[in-house]
Computed example of a mutant assay.
Amino acid sequence: MIRIGVLVPSSNTVLEPELARLADGVCLHFSRVRVTRIGVDADAAAQFDSAAMVGAAELLADAGVDVIVWGGTAGSWLGVRHDLSIVSAIEAATGVPATTSTLALLEAARAFGLSRTVLVTPYVAEVVSEIVSCYAESGLEVSGGEHLGLSDNHSFGLVPAGTLQSMIASADAPVMVVCTNLRAATVVDSVEASGGPLVLDSVVATLWGALRLAGVPVSLPGGGALLRSGALRADLQSLCAWLLSETAADRITVRLDVPEQGLHVDLAAAEAVGPGMRRIAGDPSLDQRALNTVRWLEAQRRLLVQPRFGPDPRPPAALIEVYGVNAQMLGPVSCGSEMAGWVSVHSAVERTWSAADQEALSLASAQVSELLKSYQGS
């Protein structure tokens, strides 16, 4: 059984019970660090000094934990470098791999290919402003959101879940709930299931990031899309980035039908794009299974290599006219006897796909199939 050590802000009353609810089959151990007030002044920042973290982490290491996670989001306003320094200090002192809630939350945003988000926080305006700046440095635009204007950390945990649900459901873009002392994890499933936005909650991300660090193929209920499919998406994002580099293509996408993880081919599960290329992942306008190219792929079960678009199978006009594709390769992804999806390699110009390009796509398609097997067994 995986053992996760969690450093908890001392006045936090939400993180422990919510992690226990979500972490089926995981052994959790907790240690506390004194945190009572959230602000941007020097005294507030001093609560998050790495020396205090290290002392609490050493106590967790005595329990033989597999990973240690700092379960606070101060790095969201103190900066990613602050959290990386905490991670380094903990790992140097304990020899145990470490991460933080903020690092996990930003990794989750990358797993879903987010470039824009809405924030929901309990914080005062000055703290929110610092979060916006810090996230911009990580390539994440923050536009809008709802904030409670509170600074007493204990009071965050008293905010009713219904209040948080209303704050989240009104968003017009994916939501990041930044604070591990808000009861938002309890409403993530209902918001997403009712057609609301994707919700990346800090408590859920804390568990997700710790399990990722421990090498566990995470697919758990109760934490929305992040716990259900976020880990698979993160692995697929890494694979897309690798294939983009190997082929020097302009866009890579992975499309999968995996209902138990909420994945459908009409929305790409992962995407990597080169400079100047428009993203296609969030466009659900085409019935992908009905496309000529996909029908060919389903029948042939081998690479479709198109240096240019001439004879059948022709791609949809939107691929050329809207998304600027003039050559492509498609690689089928098998799951048992079924074609669960495919990997697409797009070029903005006509090009001859080399044997090395085709070999890289074949390898990527096979790796996606192996990933599906590993997550189905999780």
Rank of each mutant, 00 (worst) to 15 (best):
P313E: 08
S11Q: 12
C240R: 05
V175D: 04
A272M: 02
G331A: 07
A161R: 04
T247A: 11
Q165I: 00
R295K: 13
L361M: 06
A214L: 00
S374C: 02
M167L: 00
L158D: 02
S285A: 15
R3W: 03
P97R: 04
E192K: 06
R21K: 12
L105V: 07
V204D: 06
W70E: 02
S166Q: 00
P315T: 12
V118N: 05
V265G: 12
A241Q: 07
G139K: 08
G282P: 07
G39K: 03
V175W: 02
L236N: 02
L220A: 01
N12Q: 15
G274C: 08
G274M: 05
G196V: 06
P97F: 03
V258C: 07
V345H: 05
I280Q: 04
V273Q: 08
P307C: 14
G145W: 03
P259D: 15
A46F: 14
L158I: 04
L319H: 09
A268Y: 04
V187I: 10
E130P: 07
L244K: 01
L319N: 11
N181P: 07
A42G: 12
P221N: 11
T94E: 10
A360R: 01
A299I: 13
A249E: 11
P307K: 11
L78M: 14
E16H: 14
D266C: 14
V128M: 03
L119Y: 02
I4K: 01
A360K: 04
L243H: 03
E58W: 09
D312Y: 15
Q328G: 13
W296F: 12
P259C: 15
A171L: 02
V87K: 04
E130Q: 10
A169M: 02
P284R: 12
S362G: 08
A272G: 01
Q288K: 13
V333I: 06
H346M: 09
A366K: 04
P311M: 11
S155P: 06
V54E: 11
S115G: 10
L303C: 13
M1Q: 04
A61M: 06
V80Q: 12
L297R: 04
G5L: 03
G195T: 12
S374F: 00
S115A: 09
S202L: 05
P122D: 01
V40D: 05
D266S: 15
V305F: 14
S219H: 00
L244Q: 03
L158V: 04
L319I: 13
